[in-house]
Amino acid sequence: MKGKGEGGKARGEEGFPLVKLVDVHKVYKLGEVEVHALRGVNLEVERGEFVAIVGPSGSGKSTLLNMIGAMDRPTKGQVFIEGQDITKMSDKERAKLRLEKIGFVFQQYHLIPWLPAIKSVEIPLMIAGVPPKERRKRAEALLHEVGLGDRMWHKPSELSGGEQQRVAIARALANEPEILLADEPTGNLDTKTGAEIVKLIRRLNEEKGVTCIIVTHDLEVAAAARRVLYLRDGRIVRGQPLAAKVGKEKALRPEEEGEGA
């Protein structure tokens, strides 16, 4: 792997944050117009953290999540996962990283419409080459865990929004990822169902130690996170553990832009 030499495992996994972004820029070209989605983001996320990224629409939240999730490459800057620079990886290596280390949850659920829940959950296991019996067992266990033990053979069209999002979460967890990336996971759900989904994600974070990064514009949702990053115009303007919000500890001094590094 390309990232190995300079910042890879040779220097030991423990010494590195799970996620580290260094001066990440992203510029989209829409015809003649250049859109600066990210303008130098620095960020570190430790193993086991629950981070919410909030900000107005167009602030670059989803772009940031795509950078962390190895879905997109920055125009400038570096993204490290477990100390490895994933911007230097090949597409194939990045696919492998997504498969093994990252689970995605989307606002639109993004389930494959013609597959029943159980098969949707099995797909990442299929890609990973897990044998049929084992993956069926694992998918069943995951669906039980998200509370869909009795809806396993339903297709997305036969499931409610909340149920679909649970399937998506089960799918994201199939290969036991290090990081769960959720892009507006409650955006299409009513408040009650949304709250349940957030509770589920939080439970996964606390019980399983899955590092969660949620993009949301809903402060209620952000309130579940231990740390909240505010993104505006492609920059992190403020980051704070949300102790104040949950009312347990006094708010820490907000991290200023660029301090994350």
């Binding site: 194939k92 997504r98 498969l99 494959i112 990973a128």
Partner: peptide, 8 residues
Amino acid sequence: IMKAIGAT
């Protein structure tokens, strides 16, 4: 979707 969940 397939690519997001790790398909090459």
